[in-house]
Amino acid sequence: MTDMNREHSVLSVKDVAKTFILHLQGSLRLPVVTGVTFDVPQGQCVVLGGESGAGKSTIMKMVYGSYQADSGSMMLNHRDRSLDLAAAQPRQMLTARRESMGYVSQFLRALPRVPAVDVVAEPLTDRGIPRPQARQQAGELLDRLSIPERLWELPPATFSGGEQQRVNIARGFATSTPLMLLDEPTASLDARNRGVVIEMIRERLEAGTGMLAICHDAEVRDAVADQIVDVAAFAPHREEAK
């Protein structure tokens, strides 16, 4: 890879492999992916394609740091430098998550008592934005995603699946990061809200954010994907499973 390429990539993944070792089952080895290589350029959306079980989520989680990559490198554009996410210290990962890489997961993981507006505002307050201002910005996002104001002060645990997902999207879009990871962002949304999310993604892409997405919804995928990486290409050979 040349320096030219790297300049335009927010994320550059090279030769990443992951095998799960299940110690409780006689150290059973489960290879999931190998030789994972792709780039996420600035302002482009890269969608991971392939059947379920092919390792799309595993790749996403390795980038985010929830899974440990066994080998290879994942260079993230972080603070005007390259940070290898495969080898980063926990503390660097935490900074990278806060400043350089947003994550919209499929499911909302929030504490039972926190009001929706605070769930959305948290990434902002984490960055040092004063609470009132953070809450105001959070409110604007919730409004855009059609969460009625009467729900803002309620904990999202009691919301419907679609509402929870929209709260989660609002949270993911609260801060602006060079890289965004989207894991089925529109899975349980109606057509109108899907449209809003597509619009939000496009705005971010235009602003230069690079995106890595998992997206089964063909309509959304067609609307935002600049490039589709087929994860099947990274399937480990059967022999390696031994």
Binding site: F20, I21, L22, H23, L24, K61, G65, S66, Y67, Q68, P90, M93, L94
Partner: peptide, 22 residues
Amino acid sequence: EQGLTDRVLDDPQAAYTQLLVS
């Protein structure tokens, strides 16, 4: 074992951590 909390709990490496998580 030590690391990011979600990494330790979602992708435990040590046999003992896998036991705890499971």
